[in-house]
Simulated scan of single mutants.
Amino acid sequence: MKKVLVARPTFPDVIERLKQYFDVDANLGDVLSQDEFARRLADRDGAFTAGEWVGEKELAGAPNLKVVANMAVGYNNFDMHAFDAHKVLGTNTPNVLNETTADFGWALMMAAARRVTESEHYLRAGKWQKWSFDSFLGTDVYGSTLGVIGMGRIGQALARRAAGFGMRVMYHNRSRVAPEIETELNAEYASKEDLLKRADHVVLVVPYSKESHHTIGAAELALMKPSATLTNIARGGIVDDAALIVALREKRIAAAGIDVFEGEPNFNRDFLALNNVVLTPHIASATESTRRAMANLAADNLIAGLGEGPRAGNPPNPINPDVLKK
Rank of each mutant, 00 (worst) to 15 (best):
L204C: 14
L5Y: 08
P281S: 10
I15C: 04
T287K: 14
G217W: 12
P226C: 04
A157Y: 02
T290M: 14
G309E: 01
L223R: 11
E58F: 12
D43W: 02
L230H: 00
T139K: 15
L123H: 10
N173P: 03
W53S: 13
N98K: 12
A26S: 05
R249W: 07
N232A: 01
F165G: 01
S227E: 02
E262Y: 02
A82F: 15
A85E: 15
L18K: 04
N27E: 01
G126E: 13
G166E: 02
D259S: 11
A293Q: 11
V278M: 10
P316K: 00
H282G: 09
L279V: 05
K127L: 14
H201W: 15
W53I: 13
A187P: 02
S144E: 13
R39K: 12
E56H: 08
T229C: 02
P310M: 01
L5T: 09
D35P: 01
A107R: 09
L230A: 00
T290G: 15
E36V: 06
L137F: 12
A228S: 06
D240H: 03
I258T: 11
D194F: 01
I283L: 13
L223N: 11
N70Y: 14
E188P: 03
S285T: 13
A162G: 02
G305H: 01
G150N: 07
M110W: 06
R249N: 07
G236E: 07
A26R: 07
V169D: 01
F22P: 03
D134L: 15
